[in-house]
Structure formats: structure tokens, C-alpha cells
């Protein structure tokens, strides 16, 4: 279950933050993910942030795959 979508933090007001999802804005609870900062990406489920998205990790994983498959192509 559990649809969750990535969103960027635009503003923070105590227990809530305004987030942007590609041109859609909504207020979400940040009780479960304190110390968020403007510009960070959060994963949103049912109106609450459930975690930060580790942009570095997301990038590294993809780069690893890209390198791996590029390498395979060269071999073949």
C-alpha cells in the first residue's frame, strides 16, 4: 500500500510546511520529520512528510547502474 510522492519544501511554519510537487502546492505535517529545511525534498503520504529523500543516494544509485550497464555494453 501507501502511495507517497516527492515534494520540495517551500516554506516552514512550526508543525507544518508548504511543499511543491511540480507546480502543485499543499500544506503537509512535518511532525514525523523535524528539522526540514527549505529546498529539501520530502516524501509525502496522506498529508504528512514521512521522510526526507536523500538526493545524493538517489543520484549515486543511478550513476552506479549507468556505469555498470555502460560497461556491459562495451564488453559486448
Amino acid at each position: 500500500m501507501c502511495l507517497a510522492v516527492p515534494a520540495e519544501v517551500i516554506a516552514i511554519d512550526g508543525k507544518h510546511a508548504v511543499v511543491d510537487l511540480n507546480g502543485n502546492r499543499t500544506e503537509v505535517g512535518i511532525k514525523l520529520v523535524p528539522d526540514v529545511e527549505v529546498g529539501e525534498y520530502l516524501l509525502i503520504h496522506a498529508g504528512y512528510a514521512i521522510n526526507k529523500i536523500d538526493a545524493q543516494e538517489a543520484k549515486e544509485r543511478i550513476e552506479l547502474l549507468e556505469e555498470f550497464y555502460a560497461g556491459l555494453e562495451e564488453i559486448s
Partner: peptide, 16 residues
């Protein structure tokens, strides 16, 4: 309703 993803979200709303 919901599993561990949704449980804390609803709990947080109840606390609020």
C-alpha cells in the same frame, strides 16, 4: 485503516 506507513500519520493528526 492502513499499515505502518499510515499509522503514524493518523496518530500525528490525532495528537494535533
Amino acid at each position: 485503516v492502513g499499515f505502518e506507513t499510515t499509522i503514524p500519520v493518523i496518530a500525528a493528526a490525532l495528537e494535533e
